[in-house]
């Protein structure tokens, strides 16, 4: 059952990811990207990370992608025109190297076993405490400083976006 769900989510995620990069229309790409994010959220649930799954849908599929679609609509670029084969050498080189990259990573993931210190949060422990509560107890103790700094980063991002996008008179 779990494997079946993994295969379904994984296959849909890969397929829609491919659609994101091959689609001519930016809106279509955006919609497929949302689909990918939903699949990833499903995978997170499979991995016992319900809180992250919820965030994935709310932040990514919700907030970020809405922003994307909004900008796509705003710029009204329409379909990308076929414009011959500019930079064809560079692009083919890119594909070759990415494939090489994938092969290397794949060989690592399939051959190397994970060795590492195991933490206290086994599946049973997390289920006992509750995922969100366990997550919060880690975030607000050991990672309080990064959490606070992230808030500053977001503020900077907001100000930066406003300053950049503001029409200059």
């Amino acid at each position: 059952m779990e494997l079946a769900l993994f295969v379904i989510f994984g296959a849909v995620a890969v397929a829609s990811a491919i659609m994101v990069i091959v689609s001519r229309n930016a809106v279509v790409s955006a919609l497929f990207l949302i689909l990918t994010f939903f699949c990833l959220a499903g995978l997170y649930v499979l991995l016992n990370a319900q809180f992250i799954a919820a965030l994935q849908i709310i932040v990514y599929a919700g907030a970020i992608m809405v922003l994307f679609v909004f900008v796509v609509m705003l710029l009204r670029t329409g379909k990308e025109a076929r414009r011959g084969y500019r930079l064809i050498f560079q692009k083919s080189m890119g594909i070759i190297f990415v494939v090489l990259f994938l092969l290397l990573l794949g060989s690592i993931t399939l051959t190397v076993a994970v060795t590492g210190m195991r933490g206290p949060y086994t599946a049973e422990a997390v289920r006992h405490i509750g995922n969100t509560q366990a997550f919060a107890s880690v975030l607000f103790t050991d990672y309080l400083y990064p959490f606070e700094i992230i808030s500053v980063l977001l503020l900077a991002g907001i100000i930066g976006a406003v300053v950049l996008a503001k029409r200059k008179r």
């Binding site: 930079l87 560079q90 692009k91 080189m93 890119g94 190297f97 990415v98 090489l100 990259f101 290397l104």
Partner: peptide, 12 residues
């Protein structure tokens, strides 16, 4: 894209 390609080549 040239720069990104170079990054990826470096990573490989």
């Amino acid at each position: 894209q040239t720069y990104i390609l170079l990054i990826i080549i470096g990573a490989v």
